[in-house]
Design a protein around this nucleic acid. Structure first.
Length: 419
DNA sequence: TCTGGGGTCCTAGGACCC
DNA sequence: TCTGGGGTCCTAGGACCC
């Protein structure tokens, strides 16, 4: 059996842990730049705040219902996630951390256990130790565990937030209940096509023949079908080093000058380099992109990306910044209002294996230099040491008007209790 | 005049997830 | 005035190899 543990309204719940006065009140969390709604408490969902809603369009609704609005505080959410995951890890020798707020546990050899009770134990401990409410779905396959989890979340009172699919009857009933667009792995496009041929539920989906599914939805769709039929097809996935790493941002205002974009691209490249060093990789290829605001149709639009093969693998701030800036110059055009840019690094090789080239090579001096920079930035706070071409005065700031303190990762911002 | 068979690698685009 | 960020996998088709 597999268990899928999912934190309820994770970001909103994290905020509420440190603001118990907000229990029972509506909360939303916004994306970077205070752009869109990316998390909602149940109360906010009930009021009708849509997922992904642009904040500026809903200010009225927020005020009217006294909805508490938070800027995204990823330092807090990341740390809370680790706490939850470390507890979950105690409940099975095999765990897959699927996302910041979800994990699969493999329950092999648990035949003698009462899994309903076991799920309840997990649920109680996570709430008690972290304050984060969770839902648990348990079933013979991963896709069915997802379904079970959905039921637990939808009917918390009836299920005590733990639902078990352990009989054929329950499986069929659950699949008939689940709408096709809510099936894990069925996105917007496939849902549309499936509904067009009268496939409206997960149950309808598993009635399709394999050949059709394979032809129209590829092997991925077919695996999903089998998993939903109760044939274990998807197994836990072990943590793999990343294959791509990206740092991309929207700007709080439009940029028009090459120099402004250069500063951003340099900072993004440095951030990618840091992430590369964390997983002991070097990259062989980078992509740089810039584009104008697609939502402002009245303005002239421009959007381009460029992929550059590097002459040698590197994870040096200095080298990546240089290659990224050279790339930027190739695609930059004057006369546009740029709203977003990013750097993506790919095609990795392990940092130790380097093909030595006769004429071009990474600068070996950068290795100890980067180690020193990482060490200093680790002890004195992020970005204490920067390249001169980065924004030294921190002119660039994300819009974060309603940021909560980093309660758990910054001593100055630790929670205070008034007795 | 006739024009095989079997591969690999790369890329762009499409689909999906949180 | 203001609309997020970061990933994965699969397939088809073209270039190229022998």
């Amino acid at each position: 059996m597999f268990a899928l543990v999912d934190c309820n309204n994770f970001y909103a719940s994290c905020e509420r842990v440190f603001r118990p006065d907000l229990i029972g009140k509506p909360i939303v969390v916004l994306s970077n730049n205070d752009g869109c709604v990316i998390a909602r408490s149940n109360e906010a969902k009930t009021i009708g705040v849509p997922m992904g809603a642009p904040a500026f369009k809903h200010e009225g609704l927020f005020k009217e219902h006294n909805i508490q609005v938070f800027s995204a505080n990823f330092a807090l959410y990341g740390d809370m996630s680790q706490r939850v995951m470390s507890i979950l890890g105690e409940y099975s020798p095999e765990m897959e951390i699927y996302s910041i707020d979800e994990a699969f546990l493999k329950l092999e050899g648990f035949e003698k256990f009462n899994l309903q009770e076991y799920g309840q134990q997990i649920q109680c401990k996570v709430v008690k130790w972290t304050g984060i409410p969770i839902s648990v779905g348990i079933a013979p396959t991963k896709a069915l565990a997802k379904v079970a989890n959905r039921i637990a979340k939808k009917f918390p009172d009836k299920t005590n937030s733990v639902y078990l699919i352990d009989t054929e009857e329950k499986r069929i009933k659950a699949l008939k209940w689940l709408k096709i667009e809510d099936v894990w792995g069925i996105g917007w496009q496939h849902a549309k096509r499936l509904k067009a041929i009268k496939v409206n539920s997960a149950f309808d989906f598993i009635q399709l023949n394999d050949a059709w599914v394979k032809k129209n939805m590829s092997i991925v769709g077919l695996r999903l079908k089998h998993d939903l039929q109760g044939i274990p097809t998807l197994d836990l996935e072990t943590l793999q080093p990343k294959k791509n790493i990206a740092t991309t941002r929207s700007f709080e205002k439009n940029y028009t000058e090459l120099e402004q974009l250069k500063e951003r691209i340099t900072t993004f490249a440095v951030s990618c380099a840091e992430k590369l060093r964390k997983q002991n990789s070097c990259c062989n290829t980078i992509m740089v992109f810039i584009h104008t605001n697609e939502l402002r149709e009245e303005l002239p639009q421009y959007s381009r990306n460029i992929v550059v093969k590097l002459p040698f693998p590197t994870n040096s701030n200095i080298e990546l910044a240089k290659f990224a800036n050279d790339a930027l110059e190739k695609i930059f055009k004057k006369g546009f209002y740029y709203k977003k840019a990013g750097v993506i690094v790919m095609d990795f090789s392990p940092k130790n294996i380097k093909q030595l080239k006769l004429f071009e090579n990474c600068n070996p001096k950068h290795v100890p230099l980067m180690q020193a920079i990482d060490k200093i930035n680790a002890s004195f706070g992020q970005q204490k040491i920067k390249l001169a071409s980065q924004d030294l005065k921190r002119v660039w700031k994300m819009k974060q008007e309603r940021l909560s303190p980093r309660y758990t990762t910054k001593l100055d911002e630790i929670i205070t209790i008034h007795l």
